[in-house]
Design a protein around this nucleic acid. Structure first.
Length: 272
DNA sequence: TTGTGCGGCGAAGAGTGG
DNA sequence: CCACTCTTCGCCGCACAA
C-alpha cells in the first residue's frame, strides 16, 4: 500500500475540527497503548462547525474534524517494511517488553574504541553507545505504536513524529520561503526547495540549526523566542492548551500541595 | 541516568510539467 | 514516459529536562 494512502486518503482537506479546543493529551501527545485495546480515537466526535479551507489553512478558522476511524485499530505496520521482523523473520510479538520495560539490550564491554560499553539490539544486532538509545531503537521493532494521530489513527513511535505528522492535517507550515510564497512543514523541505529552486544553499552551524523555532500549532505562526511565542498565544489563542498547561505549572509551583491529612474532610458535592 | 523534544538525513511515493 | 520537485515518514544524534 502506498504510504501516502494512510494520510491522504482520509481527505484531510474536508475534515473539520476545532483544533484549539483539544486538550494537549488529545493533540500531539496522545498516548494510548494499543495493547490495552479499544479505539484511541475520539469516542464522541463533536459536530462539524464549518468547512475547513483548502490548504494552507487559514490561521483563524482552522476547524478540522477527524475522519471516521479506519477499521479497528490493530497495530500499525511499518509501511516501508524495514525492520519489524525478528531474527528468524517472525514478527515481533506485541507483548514484547520493550518500550519502558526492562532493557533487553546486551551490553558489550569495550565494544567501542573509546572503551565505553556498546548496547546491542537483540533483534538486528545494531549497537548503541547508550542504553537509552537502544531503548528507543527497540521501539521500532515493536508493532505497538504509542502515539496515535487523532485524525487518521496512524500510529507513531515518537511523539515528535506524531506532532510532525499532525501538521499534515492542520496545514501548519512553519518554514516559509523568503523568496517565494511557499511554506513547508519541515526545515529540510524548505532547504531543499531553496537549494533547488532558488539556488540558495543554507549553511547553518549545528547550533544555528538547532535554534528553536517556536511554532504555534494553532495557526502556524512562528516566533524566535518563548516570550514572543507566549505573547502571541495570549493575544491570539488565550485558551491555548499550552497556556493552560503553563498556568497549571505556575500554580503548582506557587502553591505546593498540602500534606495529606490522616482524616481528610469529606468531599464536596460536585457543582451542577 | 533516563526519557523526551527537536531537527537532520535519507528513502519512497505522489504530483506535475514537458 | 521521464525528470524534477514536493510530501511524508522512519530512524538516529544531540541537547535538555525530569
Amino acid at each position: 500500500m502506498p504510504r501516502a494512502f494512510l494520510v491522504k486518503k482520509p481527505c484531510v482537506a474536508t475534515a473539520k475540527r476545532n483544533w484549539s479546543e483539544l486538550p494537549d493529551e488529545q493533540r500531539a501527545e496522545i498516548y494510548v497503548p494499543i495493547c490495552l485495546g479499544g479505539c484511541p480515537l475520539r469516542r464522541d466526535p463533536e459536530p462539524a462547525v464549518g468547512e475547513a479551507p483548502a490548504s494552507p489553512v487559514s490561521p483563524l478558522d482552522m476547524t478540522l474534524t477527524p475522519p471516521a476511524p479506519r477499521a479497528p485499530h490493530g497495530p500499525f505496520l511499518h509501511p516501508k517494511g524495514k525492520v519489524p521482523s525478528g531474527p528468524m523473520g517472525a514478527p515481533i510479538p506485541l507483548g514484547i517488553p520493550i518500550p519502558g520495560g526492562v532493557p533487553v539490550g546486551v551490553p558489550i564491554p569495550g565494544g567501542v574504541p573509546g572503551g565505553t560499553e556498546l548496547f546491542s539490539c537483540p533483534v538486528c544486532q545494531k549497537s548503541f553507545g547508550f542504553q537509552r538509545m537502544l531503548n528507543r531503537h527497540l521501539k521500532c521493532h515493536s508493532e505497538v505504536k504509542r502515539h496515535l494521530c487523532p485524525y487518521c489513527g496512524k500510529g507513531f513511535n515518537d511523539t515528535f513524529d506524531l506532532k510532525r505528522h499532525v501538521r499534515t492535517h492542520t496545514g501548519v507550515r512553519p518554514y516559509k520561503c523568503s523568496l517565494c510564497e511557499k511554506a513547508f512543514t519541515q526545515r529540510c523541505s524548505l532547504e531543499s526547495h531553496l537549494k533547488k529552486i532558488h539556488g540558495v544553499a543554507q549553511r547553518y552551524a549545528y547550533k544555528e540549526r538547532r535554534a528553536k523555532l517556536y511554532v504555534c500549532e494553532e495557526c502556524g505562526g512562528t516566533a524566535d523566542s518563548q516570550d514572543a511565542h507566549l505573547a502571541h498565544l495570549r493575544q491570539r489563542h488565550p485558551h491555548s492548551p499550552l497556556l493552560a498547561k503553563l498556568a497549571r505549572k505556575a500554580a503548582a509551583a506557587a502553591a505546593p500541595p498540602p500534606p495529606r491529612l490522616a482524616n481528610p474532610a469529606p468531599r464536596l458535592a460536585p457543582p451542577p
